[in-house]
Design a binder for these strands. Structure first.
Lengths: 247, 247
DNA sequence: TGCATCTTTTTTGTCCGACAATCCGACATA
DNA sequence: TATGTCGGATTGTCGGACAAAAAAGATGCA
């Protein structure tokens, strides 16, 4: 009956949020350049004609967004670009709260990691290769040290992501990779996965060196599939949330 | 001279940040349940023995993180789970600021979208199929209306993502999809891509209905490759940043 | 001039107190 | 049951204050 009229609910945005938005637009449009320093709080408060407290709350919003920051131990407020780690952490906590399952994470990984390997085959520089080879050596040396192995495996995949030179890909896979940590841990501590892991990693690096895209992709795929088998052999439930990501 | 000793720089975290962290840990550990309502600002200020202004700044941090929020037009503060749109927007602005190229976005998309199609072939419910068919009908009806076509295409891919039931995948592809908007726009306004698009979409939905995973993946792949050709035919530079993603 | 040290001015982080708006629940009334 | 009224609780915003630390300026010296 009252559906006859469409009522737009009246609602006022708090000032701290419109202030934040005002600053944000000035930043993304480039009016305030990235890297430049913002005016003092009092100055901004005067410009926007609000109290300093209000401006401070607005700044907190942008700060958590990662688009403004202070250098450690400094007072000046700079315009910055959100860090990868920054975004990744946010994504990660969101995924933890949503109780995303290992199954979901894995399905995403098997899509992203081979793609990263493919791109890396095309874009990896000598520096990247060197870093990867160092990682291989370390893996070989710590083949029986479960803990180091865990770290090294994670590092390996991050190096591949770095080498692929695709920042969108990096941003997408990082939070997921970090969520695998506990699962990795379980697998490594129950299975002797070191050998298989090293073989796969080695093959991948070899393929990158030869710029052999197909092989790199294929071994990465195998590697991820292998991980899944490891998870199942370790009696982990793929359909359960992969929680507990508090470093 | 004083280099003889390694001085760990003394640095105090501002109170508003430790307060935020205190609340955050209580939330992610489950001590404060998701969906429950937090104490009033004054109450929290008393508990943590800080001023209300400080607590308010802490709340702004969590608020922007999306883990606390107020119901629209309400005063009570609830513990919430970050929305997809929420995270997506953050990611998007980050990508804009980093000036990520179309090339990078596309490479990520061609990894994610077929994966989404694959999962959708297994998990799509009748409701999902119905929504997709409605989208197809609308596309057919608006085959010449470039603007609607753009919206509908975006919607189609989001429906696929919904249907795949993989939240990790959804979280990963959403920000990237939204960044394609301007490129889509350019393609649609210069090329007559409607027919090809409709064919691909139809084939995909048919495959989903038949639970034919292979076909769904293959057509999705073709569809994305096709988009790339469209971009090139429209004379867009894949290696230029895809900026201008304001909502 | 360039550099190191001292001084002054800004600026931030934190506190206090205040007040209008308005949401929320209780209660009374028709 | 639905509506009108009231009072307490809370939020958003403001103003002012102050110590500590950083930034900017001034000074002296090589």
């Amino acid at each position: 009956m009252s559906d006859k009229y469409a009522w737009a609910p009246i609602r006022t945005e708090p000032a701290y949020r419109v202030a934040a938005q005002a600053l944000r637009t000035r930043i993304v449009t480039g009016e305030i350049a990235v890297g430049s320093v913002l005016p003092s709080e009092t100055a901004m408060a005067e410009m926007l004609e609000v109290n300093r407290s209000t401006i401070r709350e607005a700044i907190r919003l942008l700060e958590e967004n990662g688009i403004v920051a202070r250098k450690p131990g400094g007072k000046k407020l700079f315009v910055t670009i959100p860090t990868r780690a920054d975004l990744s952490e946010r994504m990660t906590t969101a995924m933890v709260l949503q109780e995303i399952t290992l199954e979901e994470l894995w399905a995403t990984m098997i899509a992203l990691e081979p793609a990263a390997a493919a791109a890396a085959a095309g874009n990896a520089t000598d520096a990247h290769i060197t870093a990867l080879e160092a990682n291989l050596k370390a893996t070989e040396a710590n083949i029986d040290n479960k803990e180091s192995l865990l770290e090294l495996d994670l590092e390996f995949h991050e190096l591949i992501a770095d080498a692929c030179g695709n920042r969108a890909l990096q941003l997408s896979r990082e939070p997921i990779g970090s969520l695998f940590y506990p699962a990795f841990d379980a697998v490594f501590s129950r299975l002797n996965a070191g050998e298989r892991l090293l073989v796969a990693h080695t093959r991948i690096v070899d393929a990158l060196k030869a710029r052999d895209r197909e092989t790199a992709v294929e071994w990465m795929r195998k590697h991820i599939v292998d991980f899944r088998r490891g998870v199942e052999l370790a009696n982990l439930d793929m359909s359960r949330p992969a929680k507990g990501a508090s470093h």
